[in-house]
Design a binder for these strands. Structure first.
Lengths: 211, 211
DNA sequence: TAGATTGTTAATCGATTAACAATC
DNA sequence: TAGATTGTTAATCGATTAACAATC
């Protein structure tokens, strides 16, 4: 089906993964008091080439100048962190708590407002000042509160169910740590983080060296 | 400098990240009692095409047949998980504990033998049955014990120091969760996992949709 | 046997690198 | 001004897809 609205194809995964690194290093340089940045300097820090930095910035529409403040502001816009993001975490286990305790997120406007767990013993307790609610109340909560991102740190078997509830609740993004490959669709953006896959990739590279 | 040993170039990152997913899904199919696998079926599960599965397997040297046992065995070899991996975790915070409590690792031969933390109050305590040792004893520990992989869950400022100690201690791999980009070198393979970068990538994709 | 699936080569597509005139 | 750096186009390189004879 042809349409005349020219589907702007989304940027490549490789680039999407480099952008946060650019942002992180620009912030560091800003904190170091640097008053100017070059594509070469930034490239060296992220482990890149200056040509790629310039090409990436060009692909993303270009930035006015290379003052660290300008760059930070421009990257913030690209990354969508000029607006606040309200999050809830599903699962109050160690990983859920680890994510809640990453206080860094707040600086970029990510707020964790609640944690859900199906273990009744947690009822009424808090993690880092954030209330633990019962998992059965998730749908009501989503209906009553603004939630942009749901973080799934549950076992695999309930992840799909939470994805569906998230979609119905109008959530726009899922950050999934359960070991299942949830798929993005037109309603929701999903980002899977498979920690054990990550360890296996490391193991693969280590093994590769031995050959 | 020309050499006649034909440097076998390492496999692409994209492929290195797909291999664990193949392995995971083959294990699932095995658990489901499937007695045969096709490139098409596997592709559907990992979100791929059958052509890519076949090309990937070809690139990795090819597998004898598509029985799930054969595939699992072959992928295990590629991923280097036929041998045991002994690990230590640096940092007994929430993330360190989350990793220790991933009991799945054991099934693939990853053993966490100790946790190190510089907080003296932890001395003598245990996490999931694993002793917490003082960070100052890391070098001695590495000298006296076999450690294949060091997991860094510390703040950024000590990560580089731990990398150096790991190299001196003969460690072959580092799985780094500190928000610094540690670099692999000829002594050690480093795999950086930047959780906050991952969240920013999700945020970027969510923002991209709004345009 | 016929239909489906694989292994492998070739074609396509996209991402990275190189180049260089324009700008700082 | 001269040297360095950028923005942008073109060239290269590598990864994905397509194709199809050989095999199951």
């Amino acid at each position: 089906m042809a349409t005349n609205i020219p589907e702007k194809k989304q940027l490549s995964d490789a680039l999407a993964r480099r952008l946060p690194a650019y942002y992180r290093h620009v912030c560091i340089m800003l904190a170091e008091g640097k008053t100017s940045v070059t594509s070469g300097e930034l490239a060296k820090r992220v482990g890149n080439t200056s040509a790629q930095v310039r090409q990436d910035f060009f692909t993303c529409g270009g930035v006015e100048n290379y003052h660290p403040d300008t760059l930070k502001d421009w990257l913030s816009g690209l990354l969508g962190i000029k607006e606040e993001h309200h999050m809830v975490v599903i699962g109050a286990g160690n990983l859920g708590r680890a994510i809640i305790s990453f206080k860094d997120f707040n600086n970029e406007g990510f707020f964790i407002d609640a944690v859900f767990d199906n273990d009744l013993r947690y009822d009424g307790m808090q993690v880092c000042g954030i209330p633990i609610l019962n998992a059965s109340s998730l749908e009501d909560y989503l209906a009553a509160n603004r939630v942009d991102i749901v973080v799934i740190t549950t076992p695999a078997n309930v992840a799909e169910d939470i994805l569906e509830k998230s979609i119905r609740g109008g959530v726009k993004g899922v950050w999934n740590f359960a070991p299942v490959d949830l798929r993005s669709n037109d309603k929701i953006e999903v980002h899977n983080v498979h920690l054990s896959d990550s360890l296996l990739t490391l193991s693969f590279r280590m093994n590769e060296r031995k050959q």
